[in-house]
Amino acid sequence: MSERRDPACESLRPALIQRAEVGAPDPAVDAHAAGCGTCRRELERAVRRVGLARSLARVVAPRQLDGLVVAALQAGARQERAVRAVLDLPDVAAPRELAERVEGPRAPRVLERLVSEDLADPSKAVVRRYASRLERLRAPADLADRLRTPRQHRRVVPALLASLLVGAGVLLLVGVLVLTAERDRAPTAAPGPVLVVERAASIHDLDPAASLLASGLTGGLVDADRLSREGS
């Protein structure tokens, strides 16, 4: 076992090992070992260790290794061919949309803008957002026709209407004048209605129309028909 050695012994150790390996005398080591029991014993043990290590037999590679190496070489050649085939592939230009995809989605930026608008002026932001969603109306087709039509033609309808109104006014005036003239020509004392008063002594003598009128006016208390049947 190794012991705690003197620094002089420690510094001599590599030389001591070489002395044990070579077997040839080394004046420095031999002189030291002659006066140092620890190093003398260490030298003896080192010689034995070297002898033991060197006693290990040299092993011979088994025949099996040939086949394994050939397999490794063929696998390596296949791999190299595959790599070369991949490296020889033509360069393909990246599509333009790749750059757009790499840039990333823009939604976050839109979201940021909307949020900042809401924070700055909420009502204005909401109005603007919803006003922009109102349906856009399309101009009616006759607008284009109107625009194409000359301005004087567009006034025909109102002019015709005005003419009709003036005509109607004239006719009305003429009618009024005619009626006025006719009234002036008619006699001023027109015959009035003739009122005939007949007195009946009995209810039975009433005219049927008058008996019905009397029955209606009295709520049925005066029933001319019943009275006339009882009287007869």
């Binding site: 590679a61 088994p62 099996q64 394994l68 190496v69 490794a72 390596g76």
Partner: peptide, 18 residues
Amino acid sequence: NATDALDASQETFGIMFR
């Protein structure tokens, strides 16, 4: 051991020739 030695030798020659 022989098994590992065989594998390591195969690897050595593979690297060496490659």
